[in-house]
């Protein structure tokens, strides 16, 4: 069957308008004004960031907003050497789970302004904010090392 059709293209294009949801919406508004808000669970009292309106372990609504500092500790990280369509970052780049001071869950973000080989678990980092802050996690350009001593003990039990 030399004339068999082996491939035809059927492109799919669908446009969605996604509401952020109540918790993410408040979180994003905070980011646009340069503030990081977590939510405290009324039952287990843990502070979740980014907040999602529900405590993932208790299954109850989380309403109480907690203003968090923009500094924290890297719990774990990876260095990415692979290019893919959705991003336009220079390779290699590092992404890390960051335990913000005063939070109980980690936030995932870029680590820059440091050679990737020097990034460590327990490293202290601080947010570098964009000048033009969108209502999105992109309001934070990346996190960078603060130069403080590593705080491995503070991330115990967080990865």
């Amino acid at each position: 069957m030399s004339d068999a059709v082996k491939l035809f293209k059927a492109p799919i294009r669908l446009e969605y308008t996604i509401p952020a949801g109540r918790a993410t919406s408040r979180f994003c508004r905070g980011l646009a004004s340069g503030r990081l808000y977590g939510q405290r669970c009324p039952e287990c009292k843990k502070v979740n960031v980014p907040p999602r309106g529900a405590c993932p372990t208790c299954g109850v609504p989380t309403e109480e907003e907690v203003l968090l500092p923009d500094s924290g500790t890297i719990t774990t990280f990876c260095i990415i050497n692979i290019a893919f369509a959705a991003q336009a970052l220079e390779l290699p780049y590092a992404c890390a789970s960051i335990l913000l001071d005063g939070a109980d869950s980690t936030l995932f973000h870029l680590i820059q302004e440091v050679p990737v080989a020097e990034i460590r678990m327990g490293m202290r980092v601080r947010a570098v904010w964009a000048e033009n802050k969108l209502a999105s996690l992109e309001a934070i350009r990346h996190f960078k090392p603060t130069g403080e001593p590593d705080a491995l003990a503070s991330i115990e039990g967080h990865f």
Binding site: P19, R22, A23, S25, R52, G53, A54, G59, P61
Partner: peptide, 25 residues
């Protein structure tokens, strides 16, 4: 048109259904 995310949309019905049955998760 929901303003909620999926978890925020689901939570009230789950809690109400459990509550009406007198059950906890």
């Amino acid at each position: 048109k929901a303003e909620a995310n999926d978890a925020e949309l689901v939570m009230p019905v789950v809690r109400e259904a459990l509550g009406r049955a007198g059950l906890q998760k």
